[in-house]
Amino acid sequence: MELIDRYIYAVIKRIPQKQRADIEKEIRTLIEDMLYASCGENIPSSADYENVLKELGNPAELAAKYNDKKNYLIGPEYYDTYLTILKIVLPCVIFGSVVVAFLEILANTPETFGSAFGDVVGAICSGAFQGFTWVTVIFALNERFLNIKALDAKKNWSVSDLPEIPKKEAIIKPVDPILGIVFSALFSIFFIFENHLIGIYNFSESKLISIIPLFSPEGIRRVIPWVVVIFIMLLMKEGIKLFTGRWNITVCAVAIITNIISLILSVLILKNNTIWNQSFLSELEAAGIGVSIQNINTAEIWNGVTKGLVYIIVFGYIIDSVVFLYRGIRYAR
């Protein structure tokens, strides 16, 4: 009977290849038994067939009962972590894409307001979509193949694992690390991809004529791996703040160590002459912006500026680390 074949096919196609033949045989005998129970020795009519199949129910449901495999993308064990990560990633990428889109608009001056608006909306959509897709794909892969244990899922839980209730001042609000991640992600993306927009903006009658870039794109391309390492350091620092949720020795130690590594890398990057736009001064002069005061060695000023930047960064890192040290000691428990 064709109807039976169609029913069985509808079940079987939802079942893993290996079990198909066996389950098909089983369902076929089941249907025959059911027909026999309702008609006995009589030849079943097509209404009998239909009744039996109706009794067996929706083939998709039957197949689902046979499949004890996971029929979800991200299981309950990881769902909370997944949502947390999404809540961090989505604002980051959306905000990031908007900023980049705005800067592109600023640099290229689109024809109409409409096209500019379209660019921004497009950037938001594609940013959000990318972020969502990648996070979901990574979690789904983990669910299926890796099964890395969720962060707080310890097998042998004991009472001593219970965290102390932190003092109010020792609590790290999630906003703080999330903002940290957002801005450093933005900065890294900006520095790597849009560094031509960092520079002196040459306006004439309130119209942008040109941008004299501070950096050399080729030079920066060579230091990208190190920028990425600095970003990862920052992710670790903010990440541990986010997941620990309070100041303690471990958080502060990680923060200080990552700070030291980032500081060393930043100084090495900035000290590397090739990242700077070597013709910055001459371009500036050509644009007629450079206040060409005689008897002043412009190259020396330039040197001073770049050196100054290094000092500012060193200073910033030291302040940051001292603050961490203070908090680590103060909220040690």
Binding site: E26, L30, L62
Partner: peptide
Amino acid sequence: GYSLVQELEEKGIPIDAGTLYP
């Protein structure tokens, strides 16, 4: 399978074949 379905039904425990077989 199906004889079990019938037996359980007689004993007052009705169960769908589609549940019992899996």
